[in-house]
């Protein structure tokens, strides 16, 4: 029984230029305690996917489909009920720690809010628990941190504070939006540790949105690869990364620095483009006219779902376009 089950999620932004389809027909499942990674390039719609689940998109966004969480459809919940879900059922770890904390409220004030709201604590109790959470996330001098303001903290500390906020409501699902964006290698390892710590401590499921394949490899049980608003491949993490089936996933793996940094040629199509066929067609080395015009149906190969016409049903004979898999080089 999945904790979160997304069915045919389509998110459209009504802009001056037209309708921008940031997510189209996305279907995903996350089981309790499991970590699902959504990987893809910047602008592929993966953050919009996360924000659609939380229903925190600008007013010009229209979300269609179904987002079943613990057997209720989040998209049909009244606003008031949705507020109760945010923070207490679904925690959110935002992508840029430097701008995601309110500059005029102290850390303590920002952290106790959720505790008071979702766990019905009085201020004093919330304060004590908040200090505990901060300490458990490695902020040793938690009393001092709690009294400080965001501009007094380092980037790493802010991220820990945000992590503390995200788990303060004891959620069953955490959504982490690009937690390693713009970080150097050392900090990235720390964040990966932090996320591991979080999922161990809370036993919550994690929806990890990232463009970083290594972070995904280190943390995820399942991986879904997103391209231009669509999920093109999803399956167990090891299988997807070691034996990528979709030409795009293969391209992503091949573009890793240790794989020789072969970038995928071309640009992803604008999200305004609404042609029926494969969205990767223009950049795909094996694509042809058929891919361009024909709607693509997901195929399943050994538990991996792939959205490509040229994936053999047997799963064995697919073309190797960009070289070998992910792990073979890692050793």
């Amino acid at each position: 029984m999945a904790l979160l089950s997304i069915r045919n999620l389509t998110t459209i932004f009504n802009c001056e230029e037209g309708q921008l389809k940031a997510c189209s027909n996305v279907s995903l499942d996350i089981n309790p305690g499991q970590t699902l990674g959504i990987i893809g390039e910047t602008g592929c719609g993966k953050s919009v996917l996360g924000m659609s689940v939380l229903r925190l998109l600008p007013a010009n966004a229209v979300i269609n489909g179904q987002i079943m969480y613990k057997n209720q459809d989040l998209l049909t919940l009244p606003d008031k009920e949705m507020c109760k879900v945010r923070g207490s059922e679904i925690g959110f770890l935002p992508q840029s720690p430097s701008t995601s904390l309110n500059p005029v409220l102290s850390i303590g004030e920002q952290l106790t809010e959720g505790l008071q709201l979702h766990r019905g604590m009085i201020k004093e109790k919330a304060r004590i628990i908040a200090l505990d959470i901060l300490r458990s996330l490695g902020l040793k001098d938690s009393a001092r941190t709690s009294a400080e303001y965001p501009h007094q903290l380092s980037g790493g500390m802010k991220q820990r504070v945000l992590a503390a906020i995200s788990i303060s409501g004891q959620p069953s699902l955490l959504i982490a939006d690009e937690p390693t964006k713009g970080l150097d290698a050392v900090n990235r390892i720390q964040v990966v540790d932090l996320l591991r710590q979080l999922s161990r401590k809370t036993r919550a499921s994690l929806l990890l949105i990232t463009h970083d394949l290594k972070v995904a490899a280190a943390l995820c049980d399942e991986i879904a690869v997103m391209y231009s608003g669509e999920i093109v491949e999803k399956g167990p993490a090891e299988q997807v990364l070691n034996n990528p089936l979709h030409p795009y996933t293969q391209g992503l793996v091949a573009s890793l620095p240790e794989r020789g940094l072969y970038p995928i040629p071309g640009h992803s199509p604008g999200l305004l483009d609404d042609s029926p066929g494969c969205r990767f067609y223009s950049r795909c080395p094996i694509g042809n006219e058929k891919c361009k015009c024909q709607p693509i149906i997901n195929r399943e190969v050994d538990g991996v779902h792939v959205r490509c016409l040229y994936i053999d049903q047997s799963g064995g004979a697919q073309q190797r376009i960009y070289g070998r898999g992910f792990q073979s080089e890692a050793g």
Binding site: L54, K84, P94, S96, T99, S100, L101, N102, L117
Partner: peptide, 26 residues
């Protein structure tokens, strides 16, 4: 439009609370 408002919304705060507590002072 700021990120910290999204953070506050993701905490589950009501819109009124977000405006009076998080947005207004800024």
């Amino acid at each position: 439009e700021q990120d910290y408002i999204t953070t506050a919304r993701a905490k589950g705060l009501r819109e009124g609370n977000i405006i009076s507590r998080h947005a207004f002072k800024n």
